[in-house]
Amino acid sequence: MATAAGKPRLAVFKFASCDGCQLTLLDCEEQLLSVADALEIAYFPEATRADLKGRYDLALVEGSITTEHDAQRIHEVRRRSRTLITIGACATAGGIQALRNFANVRAYAAAVYAHPEYVRTLATSTAIADHVTVDFELRGCPVNKQQLLEVISAFLIGRRPVTPPHSVCLECKLSGNVCVMVARGTACLGPVTHAGCGALCPAYERGCYGCYGPMETPNSVSLSRRLRAVGLDEQVLKRIYRTFNAAAPAFREESERHGG
């Protein structure tokens, strides 16, 4: 993937987000030097002041689109980037801030800010793929460090990244975790949630919170029926699907089944 001028050029862009996903890249510690060896870090405000103009071979995009300005800026990023990969729940599903999609954002702004009239924002928070063509989406809130390195490594050599879209349950079983729902009656979104975290919460005897969004074929209707049986009421059922991936279609639809 090296260009004639040398190493492929990497850019990391931020939209509406908490920075956690791009910080995952800085959190790579011992592999960070390898990343810097393999790629020219052309634009990454969290890591360097360099602001090189021109085109990028790989753009990692964090965050969702919540302002008119960003809705324009993402097209500029797309124009400059040969490969555009979105990282994290904000960029792939709209993030926690997509809760505004279910409410009146003006009412929110009025409740928070002394002068809401200065806040210029869109009524919705949307995924990057709703605005431009995205070459690959890496899920998670935040993304998993190993998966991020996997995506970059795969990009560099030109292969498909191994980030399976199956349930978190498979990750639990691969690591020998005892199912918290079956053995403890703990509510768990693992069966409908995209793998990638390594089944972090169930490994600590918590139910899955769905941070990686819907798995490939989520049957949340059936899961919700089961969760009701372990004691979740309609209000809670609505809420558990409305977290970091609230606007991912499968989770949004399921939450709406339990009250608007």
């Binding site: 592999q31 390898s34 990343v35 060896d37 393999a38 390195l149 996997e150 970059i152 490594s153 795969a154 560099l156 050599i157 292969r159 191994v162 399976p164 879209p165 199956h166 498979l170 079983k173 691969l174 490939e216 074929t217």
Partner: peptide, 22 residues
């Protein structure tokens, strides 16, 4: 899998399930 430098590669197999689309 391949590393960032494109020097080390490996192949492994892991349990899979006929319930996944892949």
């Amino acid at each position: 899998s391949s590393d960032l430098a494109g020097l080390e590669f490996s192949r492994s197999r892991r349990w899979d399930s006929c319930f996944t689309s892949d």
